[in-house]
Design a binder for these strands. Structure first.
Lengths: 190, 190
DNA sequence: GTATAATTAGTACCAGGTACTAATTATTGA
DNA sequence: TCAATAATTAGTACCTGGTACTAATTATAC
């Protein structure tokens, strides 16, 4: 096969459909299916910008959690545990982009963002906004660190909720914050 | 830590909750999160019978496709492509359990099952049953082979639909069948 | 203070890839 | 018909996130 590439074109179109319906297909299986070598399938995927099996699984799973499985959208970090109206736990992996090159310490706003978005997430309301916050950066955080934030509702009066957040890196506290969050619309999300 | 294992117990309970909410967590991340070694996490998982990341992703994805994304349940093989009311494509990987030990050839009923379930799947009805079939096993199939079945509706009269199925292993036809399928209840699924 | 539980360390191995280089096999236009 | 080019195949080194195993080390309860 050469310049035209009719067989190639057909195979690639089928490849797209197959993977759209079933992201779990391995290159080896696809190769067997089309009667070509595994390398050909990899060339196809690379031309079509189709990622590898594990990435496909990941994104297929993300699509599932529509907005991280709760009403609050755009949570900074990964949600590990939550009991809406009570507490929540999230993890943030510090990447090199998050740190100052000078002293290799993570910029504070990342820790704040994690804590703040978690504080909003635990509120049992359709929409919630942070009214105010008092935060404390207790220890520097480095690249590669895993920051575990735990938010707990400490009091609630009408639309106004006080949420305390404590963030740790391996048991040592690196951040603390008290957030005052206002619920805009009550009711469950679904 | 020894005989009691209180820290261990707590960690394992949290581990379960974390992974239930987020199957994408790696052992390394969990280790960092709990401040223990990666081996400890692996011991935990093994004690708790929690499978590895890739398996967790797979099963999380399967749970998503409730009944293979279409009305017919229990499809034999993996669905690759379908246009309900027109055609469908499925893949069946021949495993050693499917073959005769004597001649190493796949038992015919596996090919039949794949074709039949696919034929039923392409019918645009809530419930469909095969009325009759004429099948032809053209060439033997061996372990490791990937059987690609393509079903196409060739005619339809009321509740009665004729579906032609052709199964191939790498372009060579190994099975052909004509299925007469009856729709029991009309209407879309979902 | 010792037996036992819990944890950590280290090794060999595996699947399913990436990324790259090089060789081989069509295909086709002139 | 043959040379240029497209398409495919082969092979290597390397990576991640594991399994499965053995052995050493550390903590704790009694």
């Amino acid at each position: 096969m050469a310049r035209g590439g009719k067989a190639k074109n057909l195979r690639q179109r089928e490849l797209i459909r197959y993977l759209a319906n079933n992201p779990l297909l391995k290159d080896e299986e696809l190769a067997g299916l089309f009667g070509v070598s595994i390398q050909t399938i990899r060339l196809d995927r690379s031309e079509l910008q189709i990622p590898e099996l594990r990435e496909r699984m990941k994104t297929a799973l993300q699509a599932r959690h529509p907005v991280r499985s709760l009403g609050s959208d755009e949570l900074v970090g990964e949600l590990l545990d939550i009991e809406v109206g009570q507490y929540g736990v999230s993890m943030l992996k510090i990447t090199p982009e998050m740190i100052f090159r000078k002293n290799l310490v993570a910029r504070g706003h990342h820790l704040f963002a994690q804590a703040n978005s978690l504080a909003v997430a635990v509120i049992d309301a359709e929409v919630a906004l942070t009214g105010s916050a008092r935060v404390l950066f207790k220890l520097p955080v480095k690249a590669g660190d895993l920051v575990l934030a735990r938010a707990e509702i400490s009091s609630r009066k009408g639309h106004k909720t006080i949420v305390k957040v404590v963030s740790r890196v391996k048991e040592t506290i690196v951040f603390e914050g008290i957030f005052t969050v206002f619920a805009l619309q009550e009711e469950e999300n679904q």
